[in-house]
Design a protein around this nucleic acid. Structure first.
Lengths: 186, 186, 186, 186
DNA sequence: ATATAAACGAGACGGTACGTCCCGTCTTGTT
DNA sequence: AACAAGACGGGACGTACCGTCTCGTTTATAT
């Protein structure tokens, strides 16, 4: 019969993280800054998360979930395009891009966080993509022997690559990316 | 009056950075740690570099240069494979991988560093790749209208993507990657 | 509904305090440490005591009471010697010394605690000493105009002074102290 | 050739300590509070002192030094009286009393600090008292076999005892104390 | 050959954040 | 109603580095 987790505090912490990231940038984020802004003791953050990165990952995935739902209009290529364009928009028009970049930066020296990114973001995406691609394969939209796993790496990995390098991300780029990924260079 | 840089100190700083990265990891790196290890005043580091990231980038590119030379045996596909496998080996068997991951992490909150990565690493690679790809195009190894820039993004970007996520990188993966990039999914 | 105090908890708290003091020292004492050790909720301590100091004072006085009883063998000087030697032994051979030092330390920023020390320890002693000294005066063992209150300050105060400064306390010192206090320096 | 200690900071720290003690009391003192008030980094305090107590001891002894000079008018008893009254005045009319109480409290769980109190305060006093008492002995103002060390303990120890217990300290009490100490109770 | 001024090692400085400990208050079930 | 358990907002701890700032001490030209 311990007292139970305070939901109000949890949400205040996630909100404060998001707010601080797009007011000041990920690098100004700190446990102390989040606690101060959220009106919360530092220990309350340490009690439930292992690092700033973990907090931001949770905050970021909250806003990611609705966007990554996989459409199926019967046209795999078109569906992929609309989803990737949606992701690019999420990245460029909300704080999600900055948050994700920060999480990836933190992950480079925090294997646990990187693993959390895998299970919370990538694995989910892999499962959904695999399912959608299987349907496409049955319909003959992609080759029977198409390497779906690598195709997924390319589509999402290159977007992340450009995000982390601060390179431009626009709908036109998605078209170019899909063209090479689906039709190849030769 | 030695208004001139002390080469002994410069090399000691780069060496100390490399040594500290693969002894303790990038996250234990700090100006103070490098200065201590290199037997150098902190000011000497600040005088010539803008951040730890900049030091590590310089140290890393030293070991990168010989590896990224572009071969031309007449077979573009095979040449790409041997170069990408070389990069993967550099990443997995030397400290280069850890160093590059650290630089990219630091770059997420240091636009100047990210720009330096672009001019020191990516731009060099783009130029060389473009040249090699043009030859391949003339020989008909890739389509006349092939999107060379995007092809490059895919080949190098996906490797970096997997590196930053701590995913496995092997020669077999390079084959899979080349297969999709050159022949497409449909 | 037990609107009544749990004696088992009370004793566990006092025991835990004593145990922690002579295992780790007074400075490692804290409400949390006592509660943890006693297997008791923090609130139970706060319900019945106002501070750690108050707990320790209660624990210490428990062991003090039997020792400070005033003997009367007919020889005031000898009786004082035996009682003071008894106190010195209590201080040096049990945890009482450490506990008392801790209480006095806490008392320096807790007037209520200092007052409790006065009513629980000093006042008791004053009353008993006064009574014993009156008898001695009637017997002519001390001067008729002897300043009994100040004599008491000297006998007990100097012992406490040496205790708080970590100076040695032995039977021989009691002899020296009594000599000056009873016969003066000139 | 390290940079050298900053005297301005040292004095600011001592001043801030004194100011905070008599504004808020010793218990509100903390390294953080002193640093904040003095406009100084915490590390600068830790670099030169081992604890808050050590800072306060240094601040206190600064104001103590001039007061404890030993007079010699040829009358030991009168000289002692004037010096003890001076000390009592220092205690009751300046922040010295509060500072000293705080140092003694801190000393109860800091043997190093207690030792510093001994060498900085008590030892000095012992030496000076011993010298003054020797002269008095030669003049026959005190007995040839008078226990000077214990006499000193009584005179200064009882004052400290009453200070630490928050008991009243007045010139009249000094008279009573000297009477017993010099003439004895019997 | 010497003077001189920039680069250098050392490290003190005002700061910020770290992750931990404990404070005293406040639920939440259990006895 | 008292209790064990423990979450909460808060404050201080002692440490690590930040980037800036003196300090003398090399040291390689420019006289």
């Amino acid at each position: 019969m311990p007292a139970v987790r305070n939901e109000r505090s949890r949400q205040a912490i996630l909100d404060a993280s998001i707010a601080l990231i797009d007011e000041l940038g990920y690098d100004k984020l700190s446990i102390e800054a989040i606690a101060r802004r959220a009106g919360v003791g530092k220990q309350t953050i340490y009690r439930w998360w292992s690092s700033v990165g973990a907090v931001v990952l949770e905050a970021a995935t909250q806003s990611l979930d609705p966007v990554v739902a996989f459409p199926d209009t019967g046209d795999f290529f078109a569906d992929m395009r609309s989803q990737l364009v949606g992701i690019v928009e999420l990245i460029t028009t909300t704080g999600f891009g900055a948050a994700y970049r920060g999480v990836m930066a933190a992950g480079q020296s925090d294997p646990g966080l990187l693993e959390a990114v895998y299970t919370e973001v990538i694995e989910q995406n892999e499962t959904a993509f695999q399912a959608r691609a299987s349907i496409a394969r049955e319909r003959g939209e992609i080759r029977a022997d198409a390497d779906v796993a690598t195709l997924r790496d390319i589509l999402y990995g290159v977007i992340e690559y450009r995000l982390l390098h601060g390179m431009s991300l626009e709908a036109a780029y998605i078209d170019a990316l899909l063209a090479v990924a689906f039709d190849g260079a030769r």
